[in-house]
Simulated assay, not measured.
Amino acid sequence: MSERDAAFRALHRPGRPVLLPNAWDHASAAALAAAGHPAIGTTSLGVAAAGGKPDGAGATGGENLDLARRLRDLPVLLTVDVEGGFSDDPAAVADYVAELAALGVVGVNLEDGRPDGTLAPPELTAAKVAAVKTAVPGLFVNARTDAWWLGVPEPLDEALHRARAYREAGADGFFVPAAPDDTVGLLAAEVGRPLNVLHRPGGPGLAALGRLGVARVSTGSLLFRAALGAALHLADAVRAGRDADLPAAPSYGWVQGLTGS
């Protein structure tokens, strides 16, 4: 295991969750690194939308590789959302993730949700996890279930079943976006791997989630959507001839500096 792989793994401390903000391009990633975040993830929605493609449709494999190349020199640990791995062939998924690892990526999110709104068979996702761990043993595989995200029947039972399957396949973490607050403590106690949850505006903060045993909190697409919202708000204010109530924007020079220019 490389020093970077070990450093990323060490950030996952149940009870003391690391905040993993999610970037979608070089500027957002560089800004988050400059703000002192030791690790960042990518947001599949942000990467897809920035490229004019749909999220969750297996269409952004090339975009993820290109982004990893652009981010490889940033002083930050990077984990990439690879959706379902862009293939149902576990060997192809492993080859793809190995390409990311060769670019310095230390982790991936690998999900079981499908574009048609169903969950992939747990055996298939587990096979993908196992193939990735065989190809790049040191890389942190965060196995994600969309049991709540897609509204399947009995999502808690389904999530726990999948957690066991993915853990046995070698997953290093378990991600449960949209899990209700009252299930988080149970999940943290039962899944047997560091638990990752999605930050929810108005929901429990880092300290409260830590008390429930959470190890990692992601912002998902929130930062990307907030940036779009701020841009629309400001454009509307300028068009209407009124002041926009927004935080001060970074200066031109500061943003230019993110590129090393």
Rank of each mutant, 00 (worst) to 15 (best):
A49S: 15
A59R: 06
G85E: 10
N22G: 08
T43N: 03
G51C: 06
E83R: 03
L19N: 05
D81E: 12
A50G: 14
E99I: 05
E83P: 10
E99K: 00
E83I: 09
G85W: 00
V93N: 00
G51H: 15
S28R: 03
G104P: 14
R114T: 13
A135M: 03
A135E: 08
L20F: 12
G41I: 04
S44W: 13
A92V: 04
P121A: 15
P54D: 13
P38R: 12
L74G: 11
L77R: 07
L100M: 02
G36K: 04
P75R: 10
G107Y: 09
H26M: 02
P54V: 13
P90N: 04
A34D: 11
L124V: 08
V108C: 05
D116S: 05
G85I: 09
P38Q: 07
L20A: 05
V108F: 01
D116N: 12
A120C: 06
E63F: 11
D89R: 03
L67V: 10
T79C: 05
P75T: 09
P90C: 03
E99G: 00
A102S: 13
L78N: 08
G51W: 07
G62C: 12
L103N: 11
P115I: 07
A35V: 02
V106K: 01
A34G: 11
G107T: 13
L65S: 06
A92R: 11
A39E: 12
A23W: 00
A57H: 12
P137I: 10
A23T: 02
A57E: 14
P21T: 07
V82E: 02
A39L: 05
L32G: 01
G56C: 13
A94Q: 02
G51R: 13
L71G: 12
V141K: 01
I40P: 00
A94H: 04
L110R: 01
L119F: 11
A27M: 12
L71C: 08
T42S: 07
E83L: 06
A120T: 12
A33R: 00
A101D: 03
T134E: 14
R69F: 08
A126F: 03
A143V: 11
L71F: 06
P121N: 10
V82C: 10
A50I: 13
A127M: 09
N22T: 06
N64P: 11
A29E: 05
P21C: 04
E99S: 07
A68Q: 09
